[in-house]
Design a protein around this nucleic acid. Sequence first.
DNA 1: TCTGTGTGCGCAATAGCTCAT
DNA 2: TATGAGCTATTGCGCACACAG
Lengths: 354, 354
Amino acid sequence: MRRRSMDVDRAPVMADVARIAGVSHQTVSRVLHDHPNVRATTRERVLAAVRELGYRPNAAARTLATRRTRTLGVISFNTTLYGPACMLYGIEQAARQYEYFVTVAAVGTLDRSSVLDAVDRLRNQGVEGIIVIAPQTAAVGALANVPADVPLVAVGCGTHTALASVAVDNEAGAELATSYLLDLGHRTVHHLVGPRSWLDAQEREAGWRGALEKRGAPVPRALAGADWTARTGYEHGQRIAADREVTAVFCANDHMALGLLRAVQQAGRRVPEDISVVGFDDMPETEYFGPSLTTVRQDFDELGRRALRALIEIVGDPDAGIPASGDRPHIVIPPSLVVRTSATRPRHRTESTT
Amino acid sequence: MRRRSMDVDRAPVMADVARIAGVSHQTVSRVLHDHPNVRATTRERVLAAVRELGYRPNAAARTLATRRTRTLGVISFNTTLYGPACMLYGIEQAARQYEYFVTVAAVGTLDRSSVLDAVDRLRNQGVEGIIVIAPQTAAVGALANVPADVPLVAVGCGTHTALASVAVDNEAGAELATSYLLDLGHRTVHHLVGPRSWLDAQEREAGWRGALEKRGAPVPRALAGADWTARTGYEHGQRIAADREVTAVFCANDHMALGLLRAVQQAGRRVPEDISVVGFDDMPETEYFGPSLTTVRQDFDELGRRALRALIEIVGDPDAGIPASGDRPHIVIPPSLVVRTSATRPRHRTESTT
DNA sequence: TCTGTGTGCGCAATAGCTCAT
DNA sequence: TATGAGCTATTGCGCACACAG
């Protein structure tokens, strides 16, 4: 109900509390802020009045007076994906702990203008800082143009950004997966790349390539994916199944691995007996893929939490005793390999040396 | 009168724009609000000043003056799950369209106090309304106690809530799945229930039971799940695989179906030849399960959008010409069956009539 | 038809006032 | 007279809106 005329049921304000308690509004303020110089009996009277009226401080007024909104923004490409959704969750958890609010701004596409538009919307709302879950190179490029007085942290967007960032070490993860397959005896490892416009995809590809080169294994042509979906994995899987040379595939994420598993098996080739598959992400379902997927684990939750903490350390929070550092940290979190059953030794060690 | 001569780098305010443009702050305000009565040349001068200073209206001040925050809150149990994540996305999309901000409050557990706590936090921030993605009965119960002056909409939380709600017709969806299996020739259909503390689980179970009864099919004992995870599906799947009577299973969601598929196949029974499986939700991966999953589709995105629109219609938005209805609509969206390959006719029609 | 003045939104912070010791 | 605990009075934050001119 929208009240304007009948001021009877207007939300109570500090003055109302003061009146009921028989004190000045400033005393009310002191009570609410736990200032020492208030007599215990006065404090009680005030608190009683607060309870009686159901008084709730007006955030806008406080913001106006303190110049602090205690609100942080999150820009995300697609909160529907497992990774972003988890990071958002981690961010929100941590924000609550630090008593910040979180406003989300989802962007449909990661082009320059829509990202800058999202930044703009959040700034208009008065956010004190922004976390970006926008791993595309274009987005990161666009963000470089954002005025420096807007604290920004990129999360899960690769480790080579100019922005402050928190991310899993994609290269290390890809190396982990690739080396694991090589150690099993595979002559080489094929790679289903994520979309190359994503930093993560680039870094995972680099890690895969590096691992092969380090071991002197032949480097096959990477299979480029247009997106991260199971469909793309499926399409590549159909081609891979037809290629008898392929014994091991490292997929840039679990969704693609799922599609690939399906295509390969539909084509009559067995996993892992004929083809070993390793994914990346470790979404909860991977354990129940057929077969359960060996994959590289990212702790998205933790990424989100770390990102929020990093942001708060940049903006500073006097109330929590955190000084504004203004630093641009690059936090890199090590991934880990989760071994399940989708990868094993190759059946017939490929002897062909060309 | 202390002019703020010292703090040079403070964000510009309307008065600064007015000074630069050589007009009053009121004229600036008029320009920004597209009032007609401003001469074109004046308008230009003002806009030039706005650009020059990089002026950005202060949201807190506007809120204080207008008593509107243009912010809505979303409470979600677990934004990590596919459904909630999608609904959140739909909500955010729609919010942007209506020029609202969205603040999220994730709750770890859906007990009474944490839900009420989330409501409280959002109200403290001044949200104009709240969308709840909290399908547990306890949560809905708790929300009944929220003062009526807080517009609330529950989304994806079953259709039988006291709150305003937007949801898929779970019963109809479950009937769809069950009838489909019966039509294929199965004597009866087993059901892997979701956690009974969720309205959706209850409603799907009711739909399943109703469909069986309507057709005079025997009603087996429902298999109770403690949660919605693939793990739970897997555990029940192991038992189901051992029961030769079972030819068709309707799972309350896709995750559980995935686990069940896996367990059943590991036990050497084939899907769909030996056991037909139907899920609920239609997450993007289901097409690539082995076999691809026949399931009941919920349009989560649409649910989120409808929920937001419903909320805006409750709170009203004079700027968009939407009057405050104050109604508590119950919007029910029909689900649809997506037929893939995980269900088929039973191989040997069970002839036992006792 | 155009533009300026004044006031209030609810809170925080500062200065200042009144009693006690 | 000084000190400080316990309170009051006043101003300003930046904007919108009613009411002028």
